[in-house]
């Protein structure tokens, strides 16, 4: 159980790395949402179902959607 959680957290680090390095902002939000999904899974593994229930709608649903709406009002690709 602990090993699965540790592996999930390592995958979340990879997702965070891609979310930071990605120049295409829409893709970066998708990577961020993947990281949130893994975090929700980790919370479930750590037996915190209350946090899972608030994390799934906020971090997987509402937050990426809000960021996507904001990106649609600006530019899709980050410039140097």
């Amino acid at each position: 159980m602990l090993l699965v959680t540790a592996l999930a957290s390592i995958f979340s680090v990879i997702a965070v790395y891609y979310a930071i390095m990605e120049k295409n902002l829409v893709r970066a939000v998708v990577f961020s949402a993947i990281q949130s999904t893994i975090y929700a899974f980790i919370y479930y593994m750590l037996m915190a179902p209350d946090i899972v229930l608030v994390y799934i709608p906020v971090a997987v649903g509402l937050y990426p959607a809000v960021i996507l709406i904001l990106i649609s009002k600006t530019e899709k690709v980050e410039k140097q």
């Binding site: 179902p49 209350d50 229930l53 608030v54 799934i56 709608p57 509402l62 959607a65």
Partner: peptide, 21 residues
């Protein structure tokens, strides 16, 4: 059961967001 007002409210807010988009 696990959950509560904030969790329920945040989940319910996904529905108007979907409709908006």
């Amino acid at each position: 059961t696990p959950g509560g007002g904030f969790q329920g409210g945040a989940t319910a807010a996904v529905a108007p967001l979907l409709i908006l988009i």
